[in-house]
Amino acid sequence: MRAVITVIGRDAVGILAKVSGICAEAHANVTEVTQSVLQDMFAMIMLVDISSLTVDFSELQDRLTGLGNSLGLQIHTMHEDIFNTMHSI
């Protein structure tokens, strides 16, 4: 089971570190990351394995949303199924 974490907002030092820190704490294994900075806008898509989480998936979502709020970033954490179902036949 995997989840997709997307982070969008103004670039700053340590965004990737903070997001992956929260993932590590919850035992979510980061499997893929794509990231770009266009002008000063930061956009990251991260794929994490959530099959051996030590907390509930909703708890991980809350922590990441909380981080987003404190950094002024939009962080969405969604189960990968929604993307797979919508975009493949």
Binding site: V4, T6, E32, T34, I45, L47, H76, M78, E80, I82, F83, N84, M86, H87
Partner: peptide, 12 residues
């Protein structure tokens, strides 16, 4: 990996 464009489209 799931296509980045698809992910952003869904979120949008």
């Amino acid at each position: 990996m799931i296509n980045a464009y698809d992910i952003l489209e869904t979120i949008r």
